[in-house]
Amino acid sequence: MNRDEKITKIQELVYEMKVQEVMRRKVITVGPTTQMSELREILRVNRISGAPVVEGDALVGIISLEDFIKWLANREDDCPIGAKMTRDVKTLYADEPLVTAVNKLEQLGYGRFPVIDRETNELVGIITAGLVIEGLLRKLEIDYSEEEIHRYRASHIFEDILADRTKLLFEYDVVGQDFERAGESASGLKTTLRRLGIDPRIVRRVAIATYEAEMNVVVYTPGGKISCEIDPEKIVVDVRDSGPGIPDVEKAMQPGYSTAPEWVRELGFGAGMGLNNIQKCADEMVLTSDVGSGTHLKVCIFTEQGRGS
């Protein structure tokens, strides 16, 4: 990320994030009858510069270090906090966007705002400028590390390679009958295509088609291979298995037709939609099968560039 990008990112986050994501949930409160002389110790021990004043469940005021210093400077007699606190407390709702907090902190000049739950009206947290900054930095760091993952994405690979024709080939082994691991190939392929910087809509279609095909291999066969060939114009997914084969391909293509065993249905698959869904995702699809020797599925999806030419 360069500097400009980072600034927009922060602006975006202030709108996106909620007060409750950065507020401190553990709030140190004082009662209105607590003496001013005790306040210093409370602030010092908890290392805070102010505290909401709470009576029962109700927020009745707020007292700050400034109030305390003023009281000290005036050499007044000891009195309950209730007499010196600010009664008109400005609060924020937990579900308000961070930008509201930033604006209020700036405009009203207060150091802190108690945070209230909009529905229960209960005090659920406290927010300060420091907490806002801390929250934003934490978030940026998370987003940055996610970004980091993508940093080595080879988006320009096709531009960087000098050749008359370039093709990339990825191969995945699919273990049959292993429902737990089903989808690992499609997942790996999806991540790889994203890193290559391929249009997310195209990636999604390839991923869904591959996942459905992989699921078929897992459910119906002892195993198989998925290979994916990528060139600037198209992505071709080729799935071969050594299963029993499909006796009637035409029938298998009918929506809702399924030979899936009950255990597969109870797991949410085998509704006879897989092949149709593959077809829906594909620009071209060829399914050939020999009973006894296996099934071969070839799916072709064009990229933007391939569609244009």
Binding site: E180, R204, A207
Partner: peptide, 10 residues
């Protein structure tokens, strides 16, 4: 089961 997450991912 895990396939709900796989589906979500895809």
């Amino acid at each position: 089961n895990q396939q709900t997450v796989r589906t979500a991912e895809m």
